[in-house]
């Protein structure tokens, strides 16, 4: 069992555990913090897959910007354990069962696929490096890239319009 395998299992366990904590924790602030842990674990996976650029972006954008935004909002509303709305038990059970069924079905459906022998390259391959991705991004994908800036602009305008007091 080499270090890569150990790291993979460790990161997987961390990701799954923290994801579970996200949905089970009663306090929204804790949920946000656990989600950040999940994102870090996923970033770890990216590094394991030698996708360094995405790992960094994931940490900066998701764990950094987006989750902080969430945190701000939650604190702004002063949400805590006491104000957390609770579903009735049967509905929660139904939801858990439905999600479990989906998991079961997907796993059962995919476990016999012929991709069993395929490997995902870890610790190697340089396509995940900033240099290569950047080259591709500013040549082949330059138009979508520019358009995404317009998307940001419109999202910003939208957020301002929705958020301002009338």
């Amino acid at each position: 069992m080499n270090i890569t395998t150990i790291l993979f299992w460790f990161l997987s366990v961390v990701a799954l555990f923290s994801a579970l904590m996200v949905i089970t924790n009663k306090n929204p602030v804790y949920s946000v913090l656990w989600l950040i842990v999940t994102f870090f674990a996923i970033s770890g996976h990216y590094i394991l897959l030698n996708a360094q650029f995405l790992a960094i972006v994931n940490v900066i954008v998701y764990a950094g910007a987006i989750m902080v935004l969430f945190l701000f909002v939650i604190m702004l509303m002063n949400l805590n354990k006491e104000t957390e709305p609770q579903k009735n038990r049967w509905l929660r059970m139904a939801g858990a069962i439905a999600g479990g069924c989906l998991l079961l079905v997907l796993v059962a459906a995919l476990k016999d696929t012929d991709m069993k022998q395929q490997l995902a390259m870890t610790n190697g391959g340089n396509i995940g490096l900033i240099k290569n991705l950047g080259k591709e991004l500013f040549t082949t994908y330059v138009v979508p890239f520019e358009i995404s800036s317009i998307l940001f602009l419109s999202a910003m305008v939208g957020a301002v319009v929705i958020g301002k007091k009338e």
Binding site: A94, G95, A98, G99, C101, L106, A109
Partner: peptide, 17 residues
């Protein structure tokens, strides 16, 4: 959403099994 997930499960079941 609950119904949607249930339907998705159903569709998957039909599709794959």
């Amino acid at each position: 959403i609950l119904l949607m997930v249930g339907s998705m499960v159903l569709i998957f079941v039909l599709q794959f099994f």
